[in-house]
Design a protein around this nucleic acid. Sequence first.
RNA 1: GAGGUCAUGGCGAAAUGGUUAACGCGACGGGUUGUGGCCCCGUUAUCGCCGGUUCAAUUCCGGCUGAUCUCCCCA
Length: 417
Amino acid sequence: MAFQKPKGTQDLLPGTVERWQFLESKAREVCRRFMYGEIRTPIFEATELFQRGVGETTDIVEKEMYTFEDKGGRSMTLRPEGTAGVVRAYVENKLYGDPDITKLYYIGPMFRYEQPQAGRYRQFHQFGIEAFGSSDPGLDAEVIALGHQFYKEIGLQGFTLEINSVGTPAIRAAFREELLAFLAPKKDLLCKDCRSRMERNPLRVLDCKVDQEHFAGAPSLLDHLDAECADHFDKVQSYLKEMNIPYDINPKLVRGLDYYTHTAFEFKAAGIGSIDTIGGGGRYNGLVSDVGGPEQTGVGFGLGLERVLLVLENQGAELPAATKPEVYFVALGEAAERRAVSLLNAVREKGIAAEKDYGGRKMKAQLKSADRLAAKYAAILGDDELLRGEIVLKNLATGEQEAVALDKLADRLLEGQ
RNA sequence: GAGGUCAUGGCGAAAUGGUUAACGCGACGGGUUGUGGCCCCGUUAUCGCCGGUUCAAUUCCGGCUGAUCUCCCCA
């Protein structure tokens, strides 16, 4: 084989792209109803944007970025996530000047240099939304509701929602000290991953799969929230209840990116190997100013389209397949061939999906193609039909045939749809 | 960044250190010089790449690449 696609990427071919188109159109439709407008930002940005926006000590920035130097000597990075670029565009285009809340969505590829596994790719695709300009917990709830509606509408079964409040950076810093004080005496009992987490990201330690026995009596972040944070969290929950969106509180939920404040949430579903997160997000009140904008709040959400699709396929959901032609033209002989070309074109102009043979093959082979493509009709045109000014329309499911005047073909097909 | 499993045709999938690499599906052609889906016949593979062992490698060994699964982490 001469060339292979880069590791962790995929070719989406006709027959499966329809599934992607389905997900994308549903995403757009839900955003339309929620009044989120599409934003398309560059696929690469200045490296520093992600360093500042995502967080210097995150795995993404430390080891997963596709970074390169352009010919002008600038360090550029293929976007590893969507929020930083959107925030940059929000600031650069001074959308904060809009008196109303700015609500944006995006769909597109993201890039992370990782070892691929089930539901994890180097180029993957996210659908995400960001809402700027309000700290109202109702907006957090709206963001969650949009995600919930999307999953529901694509037919996903059995997904769950977990929420948490991660407070403010100051609260987290204080909690972090207390947690480390709790963990320090147990350090030697913990697994090697936990010991490294203690240095890199202590809040994640409590989520460890193997060391749970040592965590009895551990402090909880939720107990350290100040009145404002607790009130915000309560209100988010009451809005979710108001909308009948079921959720669980997961006090150990910490998101992988540094910028979250207050609300953090994840949607989960089984069916992607060892991975269960299909989407997540939260509020990021400090991010806009971190990236050089004014003090402005934001809340958002991103979901992985590959993962959602894997779960759907795993659940045996009905998904759209390749387009089937309404009619397949079978032409016999040169004169019929010429006429078939014009009929084909005319029918297509009327909006009918139509195909014909281009191999000059015999009738049997042409009908076989029509059958294989699952055409509804075969339109058979030979010298006899040409003389009569007719074409034979054969219903391939029933085998019934009828002669149709050539100039009535398109109308006949349209009424049969 | 670490580890396990794997790599044969368009697809699924056997077997084998030696001269025809099963079988199934599909595709193409024919049986039926104008009727598909059923049936019958025929055709359809430089065994991922590079190197090594050997008289001989698709088969054994090593490296590479990729897939898949898992850890870290994440969508």
